[in-house]
Computed example of a mutant assay.
Amino acid sequence: MRHRGFTLVEIAIVLVIIGLLLGGVLKGQALIDSAKVKSIIQQATALQAAVNAYQDRFHALPGDDILATTHVPGATGNGNGDGQITEYQLAPQHLALAGLITGSYNGTTDFMTSAQGGAVYIYNDVVGGRGGNGIRIDNLPDTFAQEIDAKLDDGKPDSGSVRATGPYTNNGTIITRLAIFF
């Protein structure tokens, strides 16, 4: 009885197939990540448009609107009218009640989330050395944050209208805050 093993050609074919499968899985993950980044950018763009529409309609910023309970019936609170959206918990409620975004927000504890799962705020904050009103996205992988920054601004975490709390290292570091200022 003769024992027969695998030939080098058979082993090579198996290795090529494994390599192709691995390459497909990695490419698939890159496509999923790219789709998440596009979704986050679309969300930020839509939120900025909603803020502009609210401001055009009511001559106030959502969250900061001193007449919000009059402008959007059902609002649980008014802002202080200082031009700074520090009332970030009220902002999504005001936008939703005005019909400018979807969702239901209670004005105190509910918040929006990104495609990556981190919290999203319309907020007056200081991020990366710049302060002002903007959209803040929390807890993004640095590769996501860098891609968003590159598509919307200059790709640098500490300059322009998109700012991050830390450098982009491309090693899986989590950027705790990314702000898109308007």
Score class of each variant (00 low, 15 high):
residue 2 R to A: 10
residue 5 G to H: 11
residue 7 T to A: 11
residue 11 I to E: 07
residue 12 A to T: 14
residue 12 A to C: 11
residue 14 V to T: 05
residue 20 L to T: 06
residue 22 L to Y: 09
residue 24 G to A: 02
residue 27 K to Q: 14
residue 29 Q to H: 05
residue 30 A to M: 11
residue 31 L to V: 12
residue 37 V to C: 14
residue 40 I to M: 14
residue 41 I to F: 08
residue 41 I to R: 06
residue 44 A to Q: 06
residue 52 N to I: 04
residue 54 Y to I: 12
residue 59 H to D: 12
residue 60 A to T: 04
residue 65 D to E: 11
residue 68 A to H: 00
residue 70 T to K: 12
residue 74 G to R: 08
residue 78 N to K: 06
residue 78 N to H: 11
residue 79 G to C: 02
residue 80 N to E: 09
residue 88 Y to E: 08
residue 94 H to Y: 04
residue 95 L to C: 03
residue 96 A to H: 04
residue 99 G to I: 04
residue 102 T to M: 09
residue 111 F to R: 13
residue 113 T to K: 15
residue 113 T to W: 03
residue 114 S to G: 14
residue 114 S to C: 06
residue 116 Q to T: 07
residue 120 V to Q: 05
residue 121 Y to T: 13
residue 122 I to V: 12
residue 124 N to H: 15
residue 129 G to N: 08
residue 130 R to E: 00
residue 131 G to L: 00
residue 132 G to V: 04
residue 133 N to A: 02
residue 134 G to M: 09
residue 136 R to L: 10
residue 136 R to Q: 10
residue 137 I to Y: 06
residue 140 L to D: 10
residue 142 D to K: 09
residue 142 D to F: 10
residue 143 T to F: 13
residue 143 T to D: 14
residue 144 F to T: 05
residue 146 Q to F: 05
residue 146 Q to T: 00
residue 150 A to T: 10
residue 155 G to K: 12
residue 157 P to R: 01
residue 163 R to P: 01
residue 166 G to A: 14
residue 169 T to P: 00
residue 169 T to H: 06
residue 170 N to H: 13
residue 172 G to I: 04
residue 177 R to Y: 12
